[in-house]
Computed example of a mutant assay.
Amino acid sequence: MMPSAADPIAPMLAKAVDAVPEQGGKLGALNYEPKWDGFRAIVYFDGETVEIGSRGSKMLTRYFPELVEAFTRLLPGPCVLDGEIVVRSGEQGHEKLDWEALSQRIHPAASRVATLSVATPAMFVAFDLLGAGDESYLERPFGERRAALDELVGGLGHPVHLSQTTTDPALAARWLVEFEGAGLDGVVAKPLAAAYAPNKRVMLKVKHHRTADVVVLGYRMHTSGTGVGSLLLGLYTADGALANVGGISAFTDVRRRELIDELAPLVTRDAKGDPVRGATERSRFSGSKDVSFVRLDPTLVVEVRYDQLEGQRFRHTAQFDRWRPDRDARSCTFEQLERPVSYDLNEVLA
């Protein structure tokens, strides 16, 4: 029986690797495709009604009415699609993915959802077919599922698209570099013989990894109330302003407690000797989370690993690499960051 929204299926996941894997390894023949940076979504269409499931348990249907309309109008019959919801921006010939615009689409007000569906319409990039008609495709090998997907979706038109694929690892390695300029964040390799494995890391993903020297602006306490939960990071702009670019976390219990003592001499204090606190901008994803932090004298430099930049912030949480006592904080500027060459999103779509 074909999967349904009444019993939503968890998407198949990917395991991180350091480089584009070659053909002929233990996973057998591989198919490579771009790694999209959007909302993972499984679309359920029973011939009349559309539901859009997320990677978690939350349904995304109400946030993307333009996609619901398009699926209802374009899909030829009942099916279940796995893919990514993305928003594009930029001038024609220089379009790229726009994560900020996509994140704004998750809004509690129906009126705002309706407005954004017109102002920043989403599109869906399909990369797997989990069922069609009344038949489940979960046990079929990916090569067979992908061929059926191409036949089903290939000619539907905007806003339903197919992701490019190749079996050439050299071309996939080129995509890893070129497609970043269109806002994508890596390459995925899928075993052609593998069945669909919900919530299992069967696929392989290669993402960009870079390092940067950044200034530690402050810290947030851990949710347990003991020790440092995360460090806030900054970089100097061309006009000398210190901009918040993200954070690092994932410290062990022991290390969290050690950091409290190590950072104590750098804590900024008021006239009474109390720590000065600041707060980062609250977003729709922070909810009721405490966004306050303890300010530090901006002299401590840390080297971090990151994958990509979105505007003036790291797209994902950075990873601690090492302290840099040899670096002057004022030398930590945006100029050190590698910027990908612009690449038109239309060249990425199949």
Rank of each mutant, 00 (worst) to 15 (best):
S224R: 13
R140Y: 02
G287T: 06
I260P: 05
I260S: 04
F293Y: 15
H161R: 13
S283C: 00
P325A: 00
H107F: 05
G28K: 12
I106Q: 14
S331R: 08
A212C: 13
V187R: 06
V43D: 02
F39G: 00
R305S: 14
D328A: 15
E95I: 00
G229H: 02
T237Y: 11
L242Y: 06
T166R: 00
L30S: 03
L259V: 09
L309T: 01
D326A: 04
M1Q: 05
D326F: 03
P325C: 02
G28S: 11
Y44I: 09
E303C: 08
W99A: 10
E335I: 07
K58L: 13
G133W: 00
A5W: 13
G311E: 02
T252H: 12
G157L: 13
R277L: 14
L204A: 09
E69C: 12
A238N: 08
D321Q: 11
E22Q: 07
A119R: 15
F39W: 02
D46A: 07
R62P: 10
L259P: 09
E151D: 15
D261E: 15
T166K: 01
P78R: 06
D239A: 10
S286I: 07
R112Y: 07
S54K: 11
V187C: 09
A350R: 14
P340K: 12
M1Y: 01
I85V: 05
E144I: 08
T166I: 00
R256D: 07
G287A: 13
R255V: 07
R201F: 10
V301C: 12
H158I: 06
W36E: 06
A6R: 14
R105T: 14
V245S: 00
E69G: 12
F45T: 00
L27E: 07
G56A: 01
T115P: 04
T211C: 11
F71T: 08
P11L: 01
R55G: 03
A122C: 11
D46Y: 13
A189H: 13
S163M: 08
F64T: 09
L162F: 13
V177M: 07
T317S: 12
P3A: 02
Y44N: 10
R313Y: 01
R277D: 11
L75T: 05
R62I: 11
G47Q: 10
G90D: 05
A101D: 01
S103Q: 14
S57Y: 10
K26N: 04
W323Y: 05
G93W: 03
V188M: 04
P8E: 09
L116F: 12
H94R: 15
K26D: 03
D344V: 01
G131T: 05
D321H: 11
E91Y: 10
N244K: 04
R330Q: 14
W323T: 05
S117E: 02
T166N: 02
K272S: 10
A29G: 07
E51F: 04
L263S: 02
L156Y: 12
S103T: 12
Y137E: 04
R145V: 12
P159Q: 06
T252E: 04
A173Q: 01
V177S: 08
A212W: 03
Y236C: 00
L184Y: 01
G273D: 04
V50C: 04
R256E: 08
D290L: 11
G25F: 14
A14R: 08
G24W: 02
Y32V: 00
D98K: 12
S230I: 08
T299F: 06
D307T: 03
S117F: 00
S288K: 15
F320A: 06
Y236E: 03
